[in-house]
Amino acid sequence: MTKEITVTINGEEHTHEVESRTLLVHFIREIAELTGTHIGCDTSSCGACTILIDGKSAKSCTILAVQVNGKNVTTVEGLATTEGVHPIQEGFKENHGLHCGFCTSGMMMRCVELLENNPNPTEEEIRWGISGNLCRCTGYNNIVKAVQYAGAKLRGDELPSTEPVFVE
């Protein structure tokens, strides 16, 4: 019932004997000890456990660790480099795209793929793009702004205003 697998997480190989039933999110959090990936609903609804597998966003609570044997996983810990934070992280920081932060790592991982597939998404495309990620604090508006900011930064365009928008 156990199997030895090697998963590359953020460029580092992790080889471990795991039970077949070990979920990828537990492999990441408990075996690789990278706790930036969160477990929210544990039913593939909330998206807090979103990571990238070979560049594609996935809910790691609904994937078995053995299924990603030999594959490349990127978690939120893999976003920043020695150069600094990733544009999506800067976008969330500058636009207050988070309050409690629980959904944030999954939200950012999803948005990394979203911007890769669609570098200049409309507001509607962003909202559909994050439809598998729940945030119970922000009301999503600042998350949308964060993604627009990150998109502009990645494209090298002028950065949008980070001033809060007040509705009269």
Binding site: S44, G47, T50, K56, S57, A58, K59, T62, I63, R110, E113, L114, W128, G129, S131, G132, N133
Partner: peptide, 12 residues
């Protein structure tokens, strides 16, 4: 596709 689950689920 737009109505099947969400983008992450549709990736797999």
């Amino acid at each position: 596709a737009k109505l099947i689950a969400d983008p992450q689920v549709r990736n797999f």
